[in-house]
Computed example of a mutant assay.
Amino acid sequence: MFKVLFHVSDNETWPKAVLNVQNFLKDVGKDGAEIEVVANAAAVVTYYNQEKADLLDQMKQLSETGVKFIACRNALNAHQLDENSIPGFVKVVPGGITEIVAKQAAGFLYIKP
């Protein structure tokens, strides 16, 4: 089984990142990978953007297959976003970079779409 970490740090990258995850899962199957998507910096804003409802729906569907979506608390605070209003499928971690380092140390392969 593959362990893969996708890192998204800007809002413009989200559509490509979601498509990358979808295509990867088509290739390996949902049981062929453990996938985490970490958003930090400006990318956390997309989690709150109702104009991106289709993209958020795709993320939610992926989460239902086991893909984990992560938001950096430091970035949420920097953008004055309420952690309690984040979609239910998103987990908040203290620091996005710390999460990335921890996952890489645990053997996850790093992808920056």
Rank of each mutant, 00 (worst) to 15 (best):
G32S: 13
V37I: 15
V38I: 09
V38K: 07
V38P: 05
V38N: 11
A39G: 07
A39L: 03
A39E: 03
A39M: 01
N40D: 08
N40C: 06
A42L: 06
A43G: 06
V44I: 06
T46M: 09
T46E: 07
Y47F: 13
Y48I: 02
E51A: 15
E51I: 01
D54G: 09
D54F: 01
L56V: 02
D57S: 15
M59N: 06
K60R: 14
G66C: 05
G66Y: 02
V67E: 05
V67I: 09
V67K: 11
F69Q: 12
I70L: 10
A71F: 02
C72S: 07
R73T: 06
A75H: 05
N77P: 00
H79F: 13
Q80S: 13
L81V: 02
L81G: 07
L81I: 03
L81H: 02
D82S: 09
D82I: 00
D82Y: 01
E83W: 00
E83T: 08
E83K: 10
E83S: 12
N84I: 00
S85M: 13
S85W: 00
S85D: 15
S85L: 12
I86M: 11
I86G: 13
I86D: 09
V90E: 07
V90P: 02
V90Y: 02
V92H: 06
V93C: 05
P94G: 13
G95F: 06
G96Q: 03
T98D: 15
